[in-house]
Design a protein around this nucleic acid. Structure first.
Lengths: 322, 322
DNA sequence: CTCAGCGGGAGGTCCCCTCAC
DNA sequence: GTGAGGGGACCTCCCGCTGAG
């Protein structure tokens, strides 16, 4: 049980750890222990929370909602029998009734269930846009508006920003906090009156931390001013390489799941397969390239404009468990 | 809001509803509304709860565990800083600490986290084996042991069993309940003293209902005896066609997820792709068969005994959303 | 500023019970 | 059987507060 000392000099953005990601993955796979359903849940949790920035509670709510929907669909299938449904899933009849009412209300009102709506929490994706809308900065203006600074000092602060930073005003602590609160209120607008999450200090700290952690916003502690300043550093919330691929992954898995779902239902026109094989590592790259071309040409061969919409998904890689 | 009348003649095993599965699926997809992460959660909930027979609470526990593991891995990556981890996921430091301790204890003890351990709950899969072990039935013996019946009556009850029923004694209400309680106790043995779920009437009803619903056990209400009898009707808990494919689906998705995970990390020797195309319905079957052969021969071509373990997964079907 | 503790409220999962149709 | 109502236990997720280093 290693207990390394805290390094107080760690910045928010860049942390190092003594434990390699590989070790962590091995440790996690040891705990989950080859149960496929748990494996999916774990990957999903990591994808949405760690990469996507969703709250812990939001993930739990979304999982609860999914389970409720599963119950509700059973409820409909079994002749809307509350008691039977309750037995099937080990839920009290009282609770089943509440779940049914909640979902029916949600269907009527369009939306009100707690889900991981888009890939990102609204208050994170919307920030760059709201910032530039509320605190715009003309091309000739300085981003710095704080009083008591010479033009030269303003310029030196501006030049400390990373390249690619959008033209937007630099905010002080109070303005930044207000912006975050505004974002939170906006994100809650689409929910019904009840079950809205009130704004709180803890929530603000969470959002602020997420923005700094992702590099969307950077904090400037210039010796020229005695208060911390905050600058918008990106046009959008962290859509950079690995994170972008993480979203594509969630997308792929969802579609793949859909296809297999129709395969389970034994529908027409569905193909599902797994090929297990061993390969000479020297020929691996060659094989994968050939496969890529193979599938592309196959799809091209059968493609016909205006035809029936189809999708083929494939992934090949190291076989980890048999 | 349709409120169809209950049909009191519905048996437990075969229910009909006025709503088609297709309608239910459309309704669900309307609520989840194209958010891929939610879509995965919903499919997973349906797969594990509806098909797999897991309890509602078990699914929620598993989701919570996955989220906790995601938090724990972040905790390790960020230098074991409780506060930072708390901010990242909007969790109280107090709670973060409890989660960390819980997981470390689980790693030390081998296993104690609440997961969907195997694909099925233990008390459901183990039933046929325990039944045949505790209440065996010799080849020449009658399955029926209830007193006060003539040999002819015993035979007529035995012949009312569906074909393929294992040779095992037919139980009365009390014996069946005891068997279920025994199963529950066995399934709890592997958990630590704390957080064991006590047996209860509600739980017994749930398990009994699941067994009858899946057809693993059938209830016999013979006019010859005044008490209900229960007979084992299957060698194993419901591994029949659709359900079996549902397990394969969960398996596939987990492996597919794993491959994509390594793709996100930009590892060597990983290929991921999506081909979108339209097809002439008359040629669809031909195309899919060709694809199947294509991939098989490709894998055969590069297969080499003793080589590096690889897996290729693919699925093709109707494109539902773009 | 970080870490630690304790307080409360709301809501959910579990359990059991009774009574009318 | 089913619906509808009552009760209580425990845990978890939220929030706020105060002090010690």
């Amino acid at each position: 049980m290693p207990t390394p000392k805290q390094d107080g000099s760690d910045s928010i953005v860049s942390q190092q750890s003594e434990i390699s990601p590989e070790q962590i993955r091995q440790m996690l796979s040891q705990v989950v222990d080859k149960s496929p359903a748990d494996w999916i849940l774990l990957h999903l949790a990591i994808g949405t929370m760690k990469m996507g920035g969703h709250r812990y509670g939001a993930f739990l709510d979304a999982a609860t909602t999914a389970a409720k929907l599963a119950i509700y669909s059973s409820f409909l299938e079994h002749g809307e029998n509350i008691r039977k449904t309750g037995f099937l899933y080990h839920v009290e009849p009282k609770r089943v009734k509440a779940i049914v009412q909640e979902i029916q209300a949600a269907i009527a009102d369009g939306q009100s269930l707690k889900v991981l709506n888009s890939k990102e929490p609204y208050y994170l994706i919307a920030l760059p846009f709201l910032w530039q809308e509320r605190f715009p900065c003309g091309p000739q203006e300085s981003r710095v508006r704080q009083p008591g600074l010479t033009p030269g000092e303003r310029k030196s602060i501006e030049e400390s920003l990373p390249p690619g930073s959008p033209k937007a005003r630099i905010l002080d602590q109070v303005e930044f906090n207000e912006l975050i609160e505004m974002l939170h209120e906006l994100s809650q607008k689409e929910f019904p009156e009840v079950q809205r999450m009130p704004f709180s200090d803890a929530l603000m700290l969470h959002i602020k931390f997420r923005l700094l952690h992702s590099g969307t916003v950077i904090q400037i502690d210039s010796p020229l001013v005695d208060i911390p300043l905050f600058a918008l550093a990106s046009e959008s919330y962290a859509p950079k390489d690995e994170r972008e691929r993480a979203f594509a992954m969630i997308d792929d898995v969802a579609r793949y799941f859909s296809i297999l779902q129709s395969w389970v239902r034994d529908e027409e026109g569905v193909l599902r397969g797994v090929e297990v094989f061993d390969i000479d590592l020297d020929r691996r790259q060659e094989a994968l390239q050939e496969l890529d071309v193979l599938l592309r040409t196959w799809a091209d061969k059968y493609h016909q404009d205006g035809g029936y919409p189809m999708v083929l998904q494939f992934a090949a890689g190291t076989r980890e468990y048999d």
